[in-house]
């Protein structure tokens, strides 16, 4: 999935371990082959390249439920979590600390909008040429959940799935103590600023403490508001833990997009989180 992933499993035998690893690899490869926008043969690439044409695609149950999940995320965020917003990156050069030309920005913002898509399982398509789906904000987290679920159904009771920071618990340590998940310090990434004990469920983070863009002398994140196409000024980063990794990932992403309203929204949602603002201030609810 383009980033380091780790499995920590307690197994009864080497044979069981090898079997579980083989199953996990197969599962991750399948998801990548289907949903990666970087693989031209993936279903997602085919849908993207057929945008605006007459071609339609029948969706299997998994893909259909992924889109239904994307739809739920769109609705609960009042349109901020939008899997069609990937096209915005085309006009932004974050290293330049400059706004892109306004006409180019307007053109890509016009291509964003989950509500423009008709949700049909038997014949799915993107209505306008240039529209793009990017499931990166869902699939990696879902992969962590699915791996954890599959491992448990395969008889593995104790373990942790770490898909480049998207974490799903298979089960606690064999002595029933929790997994301690370290959240890194924005100033010194090798140091942990907090340790979150996880017995079950998943944890995901959003934000990038090292990278930001200066606009009018203010720090903005690299995260783009799908409605305006502009970077969001708000949290530097947030980690969320929830019953599933994919839920945690969505809430973390939406919190970043909420800008100044992030903390109020997180409190309103009533989830567990650790938020870091642009000044390095921590706010945690557990």
């Amino acid at each position: 999935m383009g980033s380091p992933c780790a499995l920590s499993l307690y197994c009864e035998s080497k044979l069981q371990f090898e079997d579980l690893i083989a199953k996990s690899l197969e599962l991750v490869n399948r998801l990548e082959d289907t949903y990666s926008r970087f693989k031209p043969e993936s279903l997602l690439s085919k849908v993207n390249s057929a945008a605006g044409s007459d071609a339609t695609f029948p969706l299997d149950d998994e893909c259909w439920q992924l889109f239904n999940y994307a739809d739920s995320a769109y609705k609960i965020s009042d349109g901020l979590f939008d899997v069609t917003s990937g096209v915005l990156r085309q006009v932004w050069d974050f290293k330049s600390n400059k706004l892109p030309p306004i006409d180019k920005l307007e053109a890509v913002v016009a291509l964003v909008g989950w509500h423009k898509i008709k949700l049909q399982q038997d014949s799915f398509s993107l209505p306008h040429e240039g529209m793009e789906l990017d499931l990166g904000g869902i699939v990696k987290e879902y992969a962590a959940d699915l791996l954890a679920s599959t491992l448990r159904l395969s008889g593995c009771e104790f373990g942790l799935v770490d898909m480049a920071g998207d974490i799903a618990v298979v089960g606690p340590h064999p002595d029933h103590s929790p997994w301690n998940i370290a959240i890194s310090n924005p100033a010194a990434t090798t140091k942990a600023i907090a340790t979150i004990p996880l017995m079950s469920g998943g944890l995901a983070s959003s934000g990038d403490y090292e990278r930001f863009i200066m606009l009018d002398g203010e720090r903005h994140s690299h995260i783009l508001n799908p409605k305006t196409g502009m970077p969001v000024k708000g949290l530097a980063g947030v980690s969320v833990w929830a019953p599933k990794c994919v839920i945690a990932g969505t809430i973390a992403t939406v919190a970043m997009l909420k800008g100044d309203l992030a903390k109020a929204w997180l409190i309103d949602v009533d989830c567990n989180y650790l938020a870091i603002d642009q000044n390095g201030q921590l706010d945690m609810k557990n």
Binding site: D61, E62, I76, I247
Partner: peptide, 16 residues
């Protein structure tokens, strides 16, 4: 928020 995402996420994992 948590309920809607919870249902959608469970349906998603249940497909497998």
């Amino acid at each position: 928020v948590l309920a809607m995402l919870g249902v959608a996420a469970t349906n998603l994992v249940a497909t497998q």
